[in-house]
Design a protein around this nucleic acid. Structure first.
Length: 305
DNA sequence: GAACCGTGGAA
DNA sequence: TTTCCAAGGTT
């Protein structure tokens, strides 16, 4: 099993910049955070820009948090940008500017949970870590448990299985982690898995069981009409604004604002098109302030300085 | 454990 | 057009 999957990986793995041998641990950390719930193709260009602009944690830590949020662009979940900025500051303060290499040290960084800590320790430092992400969970679920999808939340049983499967040798374990993840991303996908391309289809418990459907229906997240949608639209305005945006600008028709809406007219119009209640807009603004994604300056909203 | 947090491309 | 979901983390 290990040989077949790692052999497949060696032959077909994607060339990604954060997988290059000369990629720094900082580059790996940035990639892992950006890849949290965001597809590779959308991360690639933003990652390149970040690493050119901030090749070290100190570079990012030396700039306002708002610059991290602004350059995050439309990757989504912008709190990740804020936490990456905070992580950079912590790395400078507590680790002399060098990304730490142990699971525990990494886990202590803002925005770094058990997956990201294990992934950075493994992929940046070659350590033997039990890496479990959504891809690995799905592969294990099908291959060994014979079910279409893993349960909604990560269980101790799954962690135990992943730990047992991990090769003893550190270098081999790193390749194993990356290979299973890649298999889940490219072949053993959530929808329409490409089983004919799978190197271990002969051993798959799910295929052997006749591809039984999922035992539960994943409930999707609502989007239209939600606070999140309004937050996103407000933040799109703030990213483009080069001066504080007065609250009333979020309420009015952009056409009525005239030259005042110069530069932010498009995202302002998009926000207005949502036609959200004043109460919802206030909730979104308050939420952004509370999360540190925005701050008040001379009566207007702006990205954190 | 559940809720919440963005965005865009594919099916 | 709507739904699904992508290298999760925090509260």
């Amino acid at each position: 099993m290990h040989h077949r999957i790692t052999g497949w990986f060696a032959a077909t793995a994607r060339e990604l910049p954060w997988r290059e041998p000369d990629c720094s641990a900082w580059g790996v950390l940035v990639s892992e955070v950006m890849l949290q719930q965001t597809p590779v193709v959308r991360v690639l260009p933003v990652w390149q820009e970040w690493l050119e602009r901030w090749p070290t944690p100190a570079g990012l830590a030396g700039e306002p948090a708002g610059e991290a949020v602004r350059s995050w662009g439309r990757l989504g979940y912008p709190r990740r940008a804020l936490r990456l900025h905070a992580a950079a500051a912590a790395i400078v303060r507590d680790h002399g500017g060098t990304v730490p290499g142990t699971f525990a040290e990494l886990l202590a960084l803002p925005g770094v949970g058990s997956y990201t800590a294990a992934a950075v320790a493994a992929f940046a430092y070659g350590r033997r870590e039990t890496v479990v992400d959504t891809n690995i969970r799905r592969v294990h679920a099908r291959l060994f448990s014979g079910v279409a999808l893993p349960s909604p939340s990560l269980s101790a049983t799954e962690m135990r299985l992943a730990a047992e499967l991990l090769p003893d040798d550190a270098g081999t374990s790193v390749r194993w982690n990356a290979a299973v993840m890649e298999l889940g991303a490219l072949v053993c996908t959530a929808r329409a898995p490409k089983c004919t391309d799978c190197p271990v289809r002969d051993s798959c418990a799910w295929l052997a069981a006749g591809e039984p459907p999922p035992s539960y229906v994943p409930k999707g997240q609502a989007w239209h009409g939600t606070d999140r949608q309004v937050r996103g639209a407000v933040l799109a305005v703030l990213r483009l604004a080069d001066s504080p945006v007065p609250p009333e600008m979020f309420q009015r028709e952009p056409a009525d604002l005239g030259f005042a809406a110069e530069g932010i007219g498009v995202p302002l119009a998009a926000l207005h098109r949502l036609n959200s209640a004043a109460e919802q807009l206030e909730r979104a603004l308050a939420g952004l302030l509370g999360d540190g994604l925005a701050e008040l300056h001379e009566g207007g909203y702006q990205l954190p300085a």
